[in-house]
Simulated scan of single mutants.
Amino acid sequence: MSSDMSYTTEEIAKLLKISKLTVYDLIKKGELPSYRVGKQMRVDASDLERYKQRAKGLTQIEIPSPAAAQPVMPPSARAHSGSLVITGQDISLDILSRHLEKQLTGIRPLRSHAGSMDSLVSMYRGESDIVSTHLLDGDSGEYNLPYIRRLFIGSSYLVVHLLARQAGLYVQPGNPRKLHTWSDLAQPGLRLVNRERGSGARVLLDEQLRLHGIASEQLTGYDFEQTNHLGVASKVASGEADVGVGIEKAAAIVGQVEFIPLIQERYDLVIMKNASTRAWLPTLLAILRSEAFRSELRAISGYDLTRTGDILFES
Rank of each mutant, 00 (worst) to 15 (best):
R195W: 01
I260G: 04
L288T: 00
P33T: 10
A292D: 13
S234N: 10
Y35P: 05
S116V: 11
K235M: 15
N274M: 00
T308L: 10
D47V: 05
R36Y: 06
N228H: 12
G106Y: 04
Y51N: 02
D242H: 08
R150A: 09
L162E: 05
I63T: 13
S238I: 01
M117Q: 14
G88N: 07
D4F: 12
D184F: 04
T8N: 09
E240Y: 10
Y170S: 03
Y51V: 04
D94C: 10
G255P: 02
A77K: 15
S132E: 14
W182E: 05
K56P: 01
S112F: 06
N228T: 09
R298F: 04
N228M: 08
F293W: 07
L15W: 06
R78F: 00
A241D: 00
L269T: 04
Y267R: 03
H212Y: 10
S156T: 14
I153T: 14
I300R: 09
S2R: 14
G115E: 08
L204G: 05
L297H: 08
E296T: 06
N274F: 03
L312M: 13
P282W: 03
G302I: 07
L209W: 04
V270D: 00
D139V: 08
L15A: 13
G231F: 00
R149Q: 13
R108K: 15
Y35L: 08
V270F: 00
D310P: 02
V121W: 11
K39W: 10
A167C: 14
E62S: 12
G302D: 00
A252Y: 07
T306C: 06
L26F: 11
I95G: 04
S128V: 07
K178M: 11
Q103T: 11
L269H: 03
I61D: 03
L100S: 00
I148M: 02
E291A: 12
E142N: 09
T22P: 02
L285W: 00
D44M: 15
K273L: 11
D129K: 02
E296C: 09
S238T: 10
S216K: 15
G309S: 09
D310L: 10
V131S: 08
Y24P: 03
S122R: 12
A250G: 04
L179K: 03
A114L: 13
K102A: 13
I63Q: 05
A167D: 15
V232D: 02
D304W: 01
G213V: 05
H113C: 12
R202I: 04
W280Q: 00
R108F: 12
A292E: 15
T59Q: 08
E240F: 11
A13T: 01
A45H: 12
A279W: 02
S234C: 02
D25K: 12
M73Y: 08
S140Y: 01
G244K: 02
P75V: 03
V131N: 00
A114M: 15
K56H: 05
S128F: 06
A275Q: 13
L162P: 03
R78W: 01
A292K: 12
Q256L: 09
R54H: 06
S315P: 11
N194C: 06
G88Y: 07
L96H: 03
V243T: 02
T87I: 07
R298M: 10
G38C: 06
Q60H: 10
L312E: 13
A77T: 09
R202D: 09
D184H: 07
Q166R: 08
